[in-house]
Design a protein around this nucleic acid. Structure first.
Lengths: 352, 352
DNA sequence: TTGTAAGCGTTATCAT
DNA sequence: ATGATAACGCTTACAA
């Protein structure tokens, strides 16, 4: 089996507390140099490694951080997971992802709570789903240190939220500038709500110009790309007249839309200008590189980790609420006139 | 703080062992119905939830499964992680990813060992890296149940490996069939080794036809796409004559290559046929959909989990070594002649 | 400078 | 049918 401090102690004829003292260097200063060396030596040769579980049970730290997130496979989720894990690992913690869907959100949260995590990153979008709100209320006894991610409207004290206001307005203005008359919004049906900031800003922009939102809800599909493709297919086969610009809620949707447009002979950007969101790196390498909203994912994760660490060490510190701006990244998929024309025609050009 | 079985016991004037009996339903049969009901009631109203850490310390299970994997952001890694997490969660375990790079592989492994994991998925590609082999040798005292993933040549008893033999040979034959004379291989410099099966099969195929491998090593870059793009750029600027087919070690590389070719006016597939590997779903939606090798990732993960469960419950069971075949998926990027011509000209067409 | 002992929240083996 | 008690591996206050 596994070497414990007791075995080391027995081996050396010492008590296990002395061994413990040396091995985690807490009160190691008061141990004699010779004893320390003997212990360190023995630990090495015997292959000792501390039992994290026992340390966690005893101490007040488990060194375990959770992520409570939707169970989708979107690029965005995976990217966030990547960054959070890296950050957490660098600081001697481990990251455990807990995936939740509409049907199991409550159980998932309870499962998470059982692990006495030191802290939790919460995709607070999940709080808008039935159940979790109640679960949280119910477990008022104790909530772990949490930081909400990506939305401001949350029940969580600390959060790092993404702001789309400027970026979406810039995008809309850009689309108007390049001559688009009608601008549609492609997203899952559940997203046409004010709570979804991208849609809200989009709708506002149009209304201020006396236009109405043109919402194209996604049909069900096995992937976002596929769903988007089928959505456009169906739309066109029903003889709907397609807007001359489509703002898609993310790049995956945009990719599917682009594919559908192509198969119908509708050129991007000349017939339909196309924009996405998330800036999946692949999208810069498309034949028609995609205009998109670039999200400060790495920064958001860094900030969230800072906030969480702060909350863990100073439970009563003041709320830390950070807003990070998305940025417009203009590429060919919305470039209906040449770069030069565009620049000369518009004084305020945004993005890169 | 948190409700414990002791508190429930005190509340009800019972002993904590009775509470434990009922709560985990082990010897619950011998408890009187009334007591059971009282306990269950109290547990509910007091918001009791079992402490996984304490259970782990006491019992022989931690209900924690690790993944030991490279710390890259490749699509493939993320996809595997997604599947493994889902499987593990469904069975009441949690998955902890441990990322390792060349420089920290030993520490990472030690960190992993500290958690007394019930089992570990190991990307055994990591075993070819310096250090881990030694680390394993060193910690002979105890190795957790492990299953190696994706390579057969490993020090691990159980593994699920991907076989590329058939798929790569089919691809090569396909490329020849559509008239390609020279077929290059684009990959990181470290991959031009027999250990890398794709390359080995590729090289073999060529040698059997009296040709030599045409290796194009990737330059350094911030992402595989970007590296691939720059590699081709540099290659062409040095006036190298590009093969009329390029087999890229994965789809991300192929995407970057495709982008570079485009900017140099080299059409795909008519001037250069292009193939990747991994079947990243996005690649089917490109303007020139990518021919690729489709990997049975989901099946591999399922099988690996089965193998791991078996090893966990029956430590002395016989080795379980599974090989899964990659499949050729032909799309436009290698279709230099029409589908019809191709089908009529070749009796043995593989893939979908 | 080192040892003794209590306790973290469980589970499980004894008694009763 | 229920309770007392030991044990998992560790940390730490207190005793020597």
């Amino acid at each position: 089996m596994r070497v414990t401090i007791k075995e080391i102690a027995k081996e050396l004829g010492l008590s296990h507390s002395t061994v413990s003292r040396v091995l985690n260097d807490r009160q190691s200063s008061i141990v004699s140099d010779t004893t320390r060396d003997r212990i360190l030596d023995a630990a090495r040769t015997m292959g000792y490694r501390p039992n994290r579980i026992a340390q966690a049970l005893k101490g007040e730290q488990t060194r375990l951080i959770g992520v409570f997130m939707p169970d989708g496979r979107d690029y965005f989720f995976r990217e966030v997971l990547y960054h959070l894990r890296a950050l957490v690992e660098q600081n001697g913690y481990e990251l455990i992802p807990f995936a939740a869907s509409h049907s199991n959100i409550n159980e998932s949260w309870l499962r998470l709570l059982r692990w006495d995590l030191d802290g939790v990153f919460v995709f607070d979008y999940l709080f808008h789903m039935d159940g979790l709100g109640k679960a949280l209320e119910y477990h008022t006894g104790y909530v772990p240190p949490m930081v909400g991610m990506f939305n401001p409207n949350s029940q969580i004290t600390d959060f790092v939220a993404l702001k789309f206001n400027n970026a979406v307005n810039s995008l809309m203005q850009h689309l108007v500038d390049v001559g688009c008359k009608t601008i549609g919004y492609v997203a899952p049906a559940t997203s046409f709500v004010p709570l979804e900031e991208r849609y809200a800003v989009y709708a506002d922009f149009l209304e201020q110009r006396g236009q109405s939102p043109f919402s194209i809800p996604l049909v069900e599909g096995e992937s976002l790309c596929e769903a988007a493709k089928q959505t456009i297919d169906e739309f066109l086969s029903m003889n709907g007249s397609l807007p001359d610009a489509l703002f898609c809620q993310n790049d995956e949707i945009a990719l599917g839309v682009q594919s559908a447009l192509r198969s119908h002979g509708l050129a991007v950007p000349s017939r339909v200008a196309l924009a996405g969101c998330d800036d999946i790196p692949y999208m810069a390498y498309l034949e028609t590189p995609l205009t998109t909203l670039t999200l400060p994912v790495a920064t958001a994760c860094h900030t969230a980790w800072k906030a969480l660490q702060r909350r863990m060490s100073l439970p009563d510190s003041s709320p830390m609420q950070v807003f990070l701006e998305a940025e417009l990244t203009i590429r060919s998929s919305t470039m209906r006139i040449t770069d030069r024309d565009y620049v000369s025609a518009n004084s305020l050009i945004t993005g890169t």
